[in-house]
């Protein structure tokens, strides 16, 4: 037992961070709210949503509609746009004053950026990249995360420190539909803002957010990798023929061909469409982790030894610049020339 261990009995309630930027809520927030509701059913705690930003009335109401018993709101221009230091300081002050038992944060770039600025000064346990959640009879969070390239699921515990914090991988859990009737029964609590612009140690000079597509809800996905060499046309056409969303490996995102919001994998989104078509993707473990819950997986790759074929139901060994148009033609009902792998 360490010196900093706390009286765990003093801590109650499950908190969910509602991540919003300029009024737009990241979908993972609602996924967490739905999942956290299952935890509070077991523990009997209140489910508390927490929002930090500017002009949060609509966001707060939506959090109530989506299952929160109460919403804590820190509303101030200092929080818009997001910065790690003001967010971290505000969140930490709220945690230290109100003592939640469990705090769940979406594993987005923003969530992973500031979570440590809360957990470190609070000496809280912080588990990263959680894909399964549960709570035992004593209120100990069982935060499970893939380890060793997804071969093992490790349960991380935080027994003697509070809060028990975790960042959760986006797309893993299902969001609950909003129920507008819940809004009237919930409380919106405005908390003291403890942050002053004069103390900020960072400044956002420019911010440009374009594509915030949510690929996690897509029923069909065509994902491109480095193999497309910057030419998205064949994959786009295939996606259209399949009525599918376009997604990408990290390599294709890093090259700047596809926007980061569409990245699948360990450091991107977890997707589970009925159909996943991997085009020019090698099948690195970090990619596969984000798509191996898909229904049917199809791989198009010109290297017969590419690992993606081990993670696919159907594979075609061939040049994607021939296979994609040929497949699109067939799906659109046109006769084709013979194309073989």
């Amino acid at each position: 037992m360490s010196d900093d261990a706390v009286d765990v009995g003093e801590y109650e309630d499950v908190w969910v961070f509602v991540e919003e930027h300029g009024g737009e809520v990241m979908p993972v927030s609602w996924e967490l709210l739905a999942e956290a509701a299952k935890l509070t059913e077991t523990t009997g705690d209140d489910l508390v949503a927490l929002a930090i930003g500017e002009g949060l009335e609509t966001v707060a109401d939506e959090a109530l509609a989506r299952g929160a018993d109460r919403v804590l709101v820190a509303d101030d221009p200092v929080f818009e746009p997001y910065r790690a230091d003001p967010y971290g300081e505000q969140f930490r002050a709220m945690v230290e004053e109100r003592k939640p038992s469990i705090v769940l944060i979406g594993g987005t770039h923003t969530g992973r950026d500031f979570a440590g600025r809360v957990a470190v000064p609070a000496h809280a346990g912080l588990t990263a990249d959680v894909t399964e959640l549960d709570v035992d009879d004593e209120g100990i969070l069982q935060a499970r995360r893939p380890a060793f390239g997804g071969d093992v699921l490790a349960t991380i515990l935080c027994e003697e420190h509070r809060p028990q914090m975790a960042t959760i991988r986006p797309g893993v859990f299902e969001a609950a539909a909003p129920d507008p009737e819940r809004v009237a029964d919930g409380d919106v609590v405005s908390v003291d803002v403890v942050v002053d612009e004069a103390d900020a140690i960072s400044e956002v000079l420019e911010r440009e957010v374009g594509d915030t597509a949510d690929i996690t809800e897509a029923e069909r996905i065509v994902a491109v990798g480095r193999g497309v060499e910057g030419d998205l046309e064949p994959a786009r056409r295939l996606a259209e023929a399949l009525d599918a969303e376009l997604a990408a490996s990290r390599a294709a995102v890093d090259e700047g061909w596809v926007d980061g919001a569409r990245q699948v994998g360990q450091t991107g989104k977890t997707v589970r469409p009925d159909l996943y078509v991997a085009v020019g993707i090698s099948g690195a473990i970090q990619h596969v982790e984000g798509m191996n819950k898909s229904g049917t997986v199809v791989a198009i790759n010109d290297d017969p030894n590419a690992p993606i074929f081990e993670h696919a139901d159907y594979g075609i060994v061939g040049d994607l610049f021939e296979v994609c148009p040929a497949l699109a033609d067939r799906l659109e009902g046109e006769p084709i020339q013979e194309v073989t792998g």
Binding site: H123, A124, G125, A154, L157, H311
Partner: peptide, 27 residues
């Protein structure tokens, strides 16, 4: 603050692993 509890091996997702020669095989 954190400790590792149980480690469970995850059964790999079963895939058919069929390689088809022509796009028609995918239809």
């Amino acid at each position: 603050p954190t400790s590792v509890g149980r480690m469970e091996t995850v059964d790999p997702v079963e895939r058919k692993g069929e390689v088809v020669d022509e796009v028609d095989g995918l239809l």
